[in-house]
Design a binder for these strands. Structure first.
Lengths: 211, 211
DNA sequence: TATACTATCTATAACCG
DNA sequence: TCGGTTATAGATAGTAT
């Protein structure tokens, strides 16, 4: 794609071009996910962590809904299959924490509705800088126009960029406006505030100083 | 893309072409996600539910790891911001269930290692029909070849198709081999068995009889 | 660091088997 | 339902801003 065919084999060498590539490809990935959802009536969530620390989330009808559905499927599946069905530590942890607590289901349908007028892009955008959201709106402008007429199953497409997490809480010294450059839309109420530094860095990062 | 420009505006009209489109685009989406990870050193997870009931998962270094990181980031973020930072019900539920239990972190690094020889594609594939895995292998064949030499940060790319979940457990009547056509690879141990029907259907499905 | 511009490369819709 | 082929729409690497 582009002037030169590129080798998909390793992290790109130069930081600047890596950043540009990451940004472009992440946008493209989210666009593809959105198209898959709208075109095929699917539900999808995409979670992307940049090489540094930032999280970019896409979800339809919402990342939460899809992740929740996934986790519950796995948990319930496991419950039905006592032996040899241990999932990864996420589900294990979740299951252990959950104990035998019955999962409440009534909170699922709060997003429902009949479609029209309930898309996130029609929701009032309040005090959000929302670089990412704006970017998404732009990249999905055509899709938005065409989609507005008939998508009975669509409830909401959510996308957010989580602010950078500090390795402990030490990177608090970073300029606040950098943290405020992101936000999210979810069910009409606030997501985690991005005006504050996040806690843990779980150590998955490769190059802690990229981005 | 293709012979005709397609309108991204609604679920496609014909069931057969919808299925084909879904399958192709899902494959493409996963491929894009994998390229983003390998090329940029990112971590990503993609969860896709078909219009029917099936879940398709992609993750690098694993879906679990990425989802876990995401959930913990949000939870920790929330913990740091007592007011007005309520996240969606997934995190809320997770947090409530977790209570004040300290999250154990030592289980994170079980996937670590130095890369070479630990990719999922090098892991022995046992008794899995694995339509999807095979499909992924195929679509990633070139990437695999090129990637094998130098990806120090790569640990594992995981992809699976979760078996169809029954609305309650009623669709057990479906032919068993259909359930067995999927499987997964994760940390070397089994994922949820796909030879058995899954439990809950969370009611997000649009057309319960598609696919 | 994001966006704009193209030349190229890639994904895929419509077919076909 | 799959997988393969072809023509075309779409994504994007390199570049400049």
């Amino acid at each position: 794609m582009g002037r030169q065919k590129i080798e998909i084999k390793k992290k790109k060498e130069k930081k600047s071009s890596l950043e540009v590539t990451f940004s472009k490809r992440r946008t493209g990935l989210f666009k593809k996910a959105g198209e898959l959802c709208v075109l095929c009536g699917a539900e999808a969530a995409v979670i992307v962590f940049s090489p540094g620390r930032r999280a970019f989330i896409f979800g339809h009808p919402s990342a939460d809904a899809v992740i929740d559905r996934f986790l519950h499927r796995e948990i319930n599946s496991r419950a039905l299959v006592p032996a040899g069905q241990v999932h990864g530590y996420v589900q294990r942890q979740y299951l252990e924490a959950l104990g035998r607590l019955e999962v409440k289901r009534e909170q699922e349908e709060t997003v429902g509705g009949d479609g029209e007028g309930e898309f996130w892009w029609d929701a009032p955008i309040e005090n959000m800088g929302l670089n990412e959201l704006e970017q998404f709106r732009g990249s999905h402008e055509e899709l938005r126009k065409k989609a507005a007429d008939r998508m009975e199953e669509m409830t909401m497409i959510m996308m957010m960029e989580s602010g950078p997490s500090s390795t402990a809480m030490v990177e608090y010294a970073a300029p606040p406006q950098e943290y405020n450059s992101s936000g999210g839309v979810l069910h009409g109420h606030d997501l985690a505030a991005h005006g504050v530094p996040h806690g843990f860095d779980f150590g998955f990062g490769f190059d802690e100083h990229l981005f």
